[in-house]
C-alpha cells in the first residue's frame, strides 16, 4: 500500500446542467461528507447520470461550481480529478488481461512494469481474483468482472469512487452478495462512494444517505430510514417502496397530526407539512402497515375492502384489495397459512 487513501468531501454549489433548452440538472446544492456512502436514487432520465458525469469530470456545469476536497473542479478533466468511475457496463478493456486492466491506471501514471504488476496482484488478491489474472475479461463471470472493475478503479487510489449502477446486470443473489462486498470495501478504504441507482433496494441497503432525484431535481435527502419512513415529497413516497395513495382533504390538523377526509372515510395521519384545515392533500399508507381485521376491533383508521387476489412473495404475501373504486395493496408477513383468507374482509391500519 502506498499510504492510506481517505475519502474527500464533495460539494455542489448551485450546479446546473443544460443541454440546449433541456435542463438536465436543476440548480443543485449538495454536500457529501468524506467517507460517506451516498446514493442518488431516481428513475431513468432523472438526471442522476448527468450529475455523476459532473462529478467525474466528463461534463462541466453550465452554471455553479463543483468542489472535491474543497477545491473547485470546474475545468479539470476526468484524468486529473481524485475520482474513479465504475461504469454501468463496467467498460473493461476486452483485449487486455485482467492484470493489465487493473494495472492500466498505474501504467498511465508511469509506474514501472514490475511495480504496477505487484500492486495489481495485491488488488486482485483483495477481490480474490489472483487466479484469473492472466485471463481476458470475456472469460470471467459477471461477478468476477464486477470485481475486476472495482480493483481497476481502486488501483489509482481515488478519494471518491463513483458508481453508475454497476450491479444492474447481475442476478439477484449475486447482486446481494456484491452489495455487501461494496459496503465492506467502502468501510475498509474510507473512500467516499457516490452510488447511482434506480433500484431502491440497493440504495436502502448500502447507503449512509440517499438523495431521491426526479426531473433533474433532488427532491429529498436523508438516511434510508428517513427517506422510507418520512418521505417529504410525493415522488419519494411513491418511488421508494410501494404506497397506497388516498385523495383527501384535511378536516382538522393539529400538532403534527391531521384528520383527513377521503371517499373511504376519515383517517388520522401524520401531517409533516403542517397543512391547514381544508387543504387538499394526498395520504400515503405503506402496504406493510395495513392489517386485516375482524368485523369488531379498533374504531380508528378502518375501511372495508374485498380481497381480490393473494400472491405469496416468500417472506410476505401481497393482497390486492378492492375498496369501492380504489385498489389497495397490503403486505402480510407470511407465517404459514395464518394469512390465508377467504374472499372478503375489513382492512385497517
Amino acid at each position: 500500500m502506498t499510504g492510506q487513501t481517505t475519502g474527500m468531501e464533495i460539494e455542489l454549489r448551485r450546479s446546473e446542467v443544460r443541454f440546449g433548452s433541456f435542463q438536465a440538472v436543476q440548480p443543485t446544492d449538495l454536500r457529501i461528507a468524506p467517507g460517506e456512502f451516498f446514493s442518488i436514487l431516481g428513475p431513468s432520465g432523472c438526471g442522476k447520470t448527468t450529475l455523476l458525469r459532473l462529478l467525474s469530470g466528463f461534463l462541466d456545469p453550465t452554471a455553479g461550481d463543483v468542489l472535491i476536497g474543497g477545491k473547485s473542479m470546474v475545468g479539470t478533466g476526468p484524468s486529473d480529478r481524485p475520482t474513479a468511475l465504475i461504469f454501468q457496463n463496467l467498460a473493461l478493456f476486452p483485449l487486455m488481461s485482467v492484470l493489465e486492466n487493473v494495472a492500466f491506471g498505474l501504467e498511465m501514471r508511469g509506474w514501472s512494469k514490475v511495480r504496477r504488476r505487484a500492486r495489481a496482484m495485491e488488488l486482485l488478491e483483495t477481490v480474490a481474483l489472483t487466479e484469473q489474472a492472466g485471463k481476458l475479461p470475456a472469460q470471467l463471470s459477471g461477478g468476477q468482472k464486477q470485481r475486476v472493475a472495482i480493483a481497476r478503479a481502486l488501483a489509482v487510489e481515488p478519494a471518491v469512487l463513483l458508481l453508475d449502477e454497476p450491479l444492474s446486470a447481475l442476478d439477484l443473489k449475486l447482486r446481494q452478495h456484491m452489495r455487501a462486498e461494496l459496503k465492506q470495501i467502502q468501510a475498509r478504504t474510507g473512500i467516499t462512494f457516490v452510488y447511482i441507482t434506480h433500484d431502491q433496494g440497493e440504495a436502502l441497503t448500502m447507503s449512509d444517505r440517499i438523495a431521491v432525484m426526479n426531473h433533474g431535481r433532488i427532491v429529498q435527502i436523508g438516511t434510508p430510514d428517513e427517506v422510507y419512513d418520512h418521505p417529504d415529497a410525493a415522488f419519494s413516497a411513491t418511488f421508494v417502496g410501494e404506497m397506497n395513495v388516498f385523495d383527501g382533504k384535511v378536516a382538522a390538523g393539529a400538532d403534527g397530526f391531521a384528520r383527513i377526509d377521503t371517499r373511504l372515510g376519515q383517517f388520522r395521519a401524520t401531517n409533516p407539512k403542517r397543512l391547514a384545515d381544508g387543504a387538499t392533500t394526498l395520504m400515503f399508507v405503506r402496504p406493510e402497515r395495513m392489517r386485516l381485521l375482524d368485523a369488531a376491533g379498533v374504531a380508528e383508521n378502518r375501511l372495508a375492502a374485498v380481497v381480490q387476489r393473494r400472491d405469496l412473495e416468500g417472506a410476505y404475501s401481497t393482497l390486492t384489495l378492492q375498496a369501492q373504486d380504489q385498489v389497495l395493496t397490503v403486505h402480510l408477513q407470511h407465517l404459514g397459512g395464518a394469512d390465508q383468507l377467504a374472499g372478503g374482509g375489513d382492512a385497517g391500519f
Partner: peptide
C-alpha cells in the same frame, strides 16, 4: 464502446495513450 475511451481517460490516460492502448 465509447465507455472504454472514457474509462481510459478516467484512469488518467492521455489522448495518445487512449489511442495506442
Amino acid at each position: 464502446d465509447s465507455n472504454q475511451i472514457e474509462a481510459a481517460r478516467d484512469l488518467g490516460a492521455s489522448s495518445w495513450r487512449i489511442h495506442t492502448r
